[in-house]
Amino acid sequence: MTTVVEAFASVAAQVVERFVGRNGRVRGSAVVHAVHPERWLGEIRVPAPACRVGVAGFELDALVPTDDPVTCARCLQSGQHSTVNSAGPRQLALWEAENP
């Protein structure tokens, strides 16, 4: 008999498999995030945005895999972005950078 934790771990493993070598987009958003493993329900790991932006609670299908390049400024600044393709539009800055 499968325990609840084993069932969740099995589902999480399937989700992780979809993100191997890929970036992610939060459903309904055009911003592409770098993806890293995040702890979920104890020791189970699931894909999550590297910048730690919220993703619809713990709905595993809210983060959609993509081969598009990372456009999230926070993911890019953290250095945790994928090298799938570094070309592409960048997310707009919230404020202008100061000129030295």
Rank of each mutant, 00 (worst) to 15 (best):
T2H: 07
T3Y: 07
V5P: 00
V5F: 06
V5T: 14
E6G: 08
E6F: 01
A7M: 06
A7T: 09
A9H: 04
A13I: 08
Q14A: 07
V15C: 06
V15N: 05
V16S: 13
V16M: 15
E17G: 03
E17V: 06
R18N: 11
R18Q: 15
F19T: 09
V20E: 15
N23G: 05
N23H: 11
G24Q: 02
V26T: 10
R27T: 09
G28V: 07
A30N: 13
A30D: 15
V35T: 11
V35R: 07
P37E: 09
P37H: 03
P37C: 02
E38T: 01
W40V: 02
E43G: 07
E43D: 13
I44P: 02
I44S: 06
I44K: 05
R45G: 00
V46D: 06
V46H: 06
P47C: 07
P47N: 07
A48E: 09
P49Y: 02
C51R: 04
C51I: 04
V53Q: 12
D61N: 05
A62Y: 12
L63V: 03
L63W: 04
V64T: 13
V64I: 09
P65S: 10
D67H: 13
D68K: 15
D68W: 02
P69D: 13
P69W: 10
P69A: 15
T71N: 03
A73H: 08
S78F: 01
S78V: 01
S78A: 12
S82Q: 08
N85Q: 14
N85R: 15
N85K: 09
A87K: 07
A87G: 14
A87R: 15
A87D: 14
P89V: 14
R90P: 03
R90S: 06
Q91W: 08
L92R: 15
A93N: 14
L94R: 13
E96N: 10
A97R: 12
E98W: 01
E98A: 06
E98C: 00
P100M: 08
